[in-house]
Design a protein around this nucleic acid. Structure first.
Lengths: 148, 148
DNA sequence: TGTTTTTGATTGCGTACGCAACTACTTTTT
DNA sequence: AAAAAGTAGTTGCGTACGCAATCAAAAACA
C-alpha cells in the first residue's frame, strides 16, 4: 500500500467538495425546471443504452448504483409514470425485464437537455477541452472498486 | 456559454461514475468496520476546524452541505451519542452552537483512520503524487456553485 | 415605542433508500 | 426424481433527508 500522502488526501477532499456542490446544483436546477432528478435519468439512460432497451432488474440495479430493493421502488415510480414497463422474462420465470417506453425515451431527452445545461454551467464552462481530457485521463487511472 | 463539448460531457460522466463508486466503497468499509458514516465525519470535522470547536447550526449546515432541518436531526443523533453538545448562543438567544466534545474528537479520529484508509485504497493508490496534484489543480479551476 | 419583517432553529410530513426476511423459481446435489 | 441450496425480485421496517409550516427572538421600520 502506498503512503497516505497529503497530496492524495488533499486531492480527494477537493474532489469531494466540488463534486457534491456541482451535483447538488445540477439537481436543484432540474427540480426548479420541473424535471425529474438524476436517479431517474441514470436508470432511464442505462435502459436506453441496453439492447432492445431493456434490462433485468438486477442488472439495472447494478448499473444505476442502487440496491435491489431501491431499484424495485424506483421502477415502481417510473412504471407508474409510464416511462418503463415490467415484462416477465421468458428464460427465467423469476425474472423481470424493465423496458423503456417511447414516453420514457422522450422524458430521458428532456432530462438530458437540462442535465447537459447543468454540466456545462457548473463544470464544463470552467475547463478547456484539453483540461477536460486531462481530467478524464486521470480519472481513468482509478479502477472501479470491486464489490466484495 | 461555452459549447457543450463531448470532452466535457465525457469527463463529467467518468467523474460521476468513479466518484459514486469510490464514495460507496469507502462508506461501506466504514460501516463494515463499525464506524459511523461520512456525514458524521463531515460534521464533526467542520466543528474540529472551527475556533473553539463550535459553530452555529446554520454555519454547520452549510459547511456540512445539509439543509437546516437535516442538520437539526444529525445534531440530534450526534448529541445523543455525546459527540457534541448544543449550547445556547449568548449573542443571539435564538441561536445554538454545536460544540465538539472530547468524545467527539476521539470519534472523529477513529473515523478518520478508516476514512483515510479508504481514500488511499480506492483513490490515492492509483495516482502518483504528481497526478494527484494535477487532479487537484484541475478541480480548483471549477468555482463552487453559488447558492441562488 | 409598538408593529412589521426577517432570521435561527425545530417539527410534521412526505420521499428515497438499504437491510433483512420472504416468496417463487431455478440449479445443484444425492 | 426428490431434496437442498442458490438466485430474482418484492415487501416490511428503520433511517436520513428536504420542504414547508411554525415558533421564538432579533432587526427594521413607523
Amino acid at each position: 500500500m502506498a503512503e497516505a500522502n497529503d497530496a492524495h488526501l488533499d486531492a480527494w477532499r477537493r474532489l469531494y467538495v466540488a463534486f457534491w456542490q456541482i451535483f447538488a446544483a445540477i439537481d436543484a436546477d432540474l427540480g426548479a425546471a420541473g424535471l425529474p432528478s438524476l436517479s431517474w435519468y441514470d436508470a432511464l439512460y442505462q435502459l436506453y443504452l441496453a439492447p432492445e432497451r431493456r434490462l433485468r432488474m438486477s442488472e439495472l440495479a447494478r448499473s444505476a448504483m442502487l440496491s435491489r430493493s431501491g431499484l424495485t421502488r424506483l421502477v415502481d415510480r417510473l412504471e407508474k409514470e409510464g416511462l418503463i414497463v415490467r415484462r416477465s422474462c421468458p428464460q427465467d420465470r423469476r425474472g423481470q425485464h424493465a423496458e423503456l417506453t417511447p414516453k420514457g425515451v422522450e422524458t430521458l431527452r428532456k432530462i438530458w437537455t437540462g442535465y447537459r445545461a447543468g454540466i456545462v454551467r457548473y463544470f464544463g464552462d470552467h475547463l478547456t477541452v484539453t483540461e477536460a481530457r486531462q481530467l478524464a485521463a486521470l480519472i481513468e487511472k482509478i479502477p472501479l472498486p470491486q464489490k466484495t
